[in-house]
Amino acid sequence: MLRLVFAALAGGFFGGGLMLSGMTDTARVQGFLDIFGAWNPTLAFVMGGAMLPMALAWVVADRRKVSVLGTPFPPMRRGVDRPLVLGSILFGVGWGLSGLCPGPAMAVVSFAGPGGLVFLLAMGAGMVLAPQATRLTNRLASQRLQMDIRRLTDSYAVSPQIAVEDLQAIKAAGFTTVIDNRPDGEIPPDLHTPVMKAAAEALGLTFVVNPVIGGALTMENVSLQRQAMESATGPVFAYCASGNRCSVVWALAQAGTMPVDDLVRIPARYGYQLDHLRPQLHALAGDKV
């Protein structure tokens, strides 16, 4: 209940601030963007004013673990990726054309007439289609780079052994965490874990070392994979020799979160046969067979 009261207070303050500052007037917003015409700097004052309390709030948030109502503070997402760049460019065009961004578009809907409603409905349609657009962007990126990224889900992909040079492409394809599931004993020294880890971290990727010994997978492997996936701030990329071990640990770590049929069927699309794991997956999921 308190959560809803404060959500209303925040929404109301946001709306009031937008009205007071004139950011609901598209002429003023486009005036700020019009550097070759009669430039209007008001938006810079609004941004400056808004950042003061917010910068303080982040300082306070850094010293505490959870919010007043007990919610953990959102971690900072790292990594500038393709969807971020492309999306911000598309938004810039829409913002320039209309003078409206999402907050003000909602704030003015009660008095902006039919045009305001047209903008809002079109914005909603764009928001619904955005996940598909993001997936398409990522797929095109990985195709162009000729890499063999096998996306089991939107948030988890597997691959055969990668080289140091591939890390840039993995980052560009939107991944934020790389999991190494291959023990160093079976690979040449220039692809050993410390080399890959240093290169990945230099790019701002999180690198998780979780070597799975072929045929001797442990439950620690499974829980480490699960932890890495849960704490990732974006899609996860796992590699081993063929991608098979990454698929096996994935299926075991996901048991109970999706039907066993899916856990077997999805990796099968890429040629990973997990049928023999069915009894174990059912047991982990707590199913009564």
């Binding site: 969807p83 971020l84 492309l86 999306g87 911000s88 460019i89 598309l90 938004f91 810039g92 065009v93 829409g94 913002w95 054309l97 209309s98 409206l100 961004c101 999402p102 578009a105 903008f119 079109a122 914005m123 909603g124 349609a125 764009g126 928001m127 619904v128 289609l129 955005a130 996940p131 657009a133 993001t134 962007t137």
Partner: peptide, 8 residues
């Protein structure tokens, strides 16, 4: 464009 761009 605003909708699709901001969500991407």
């Amino acid at each position: 464009l605003t909708g699709i761009g901001t969500r991407m």
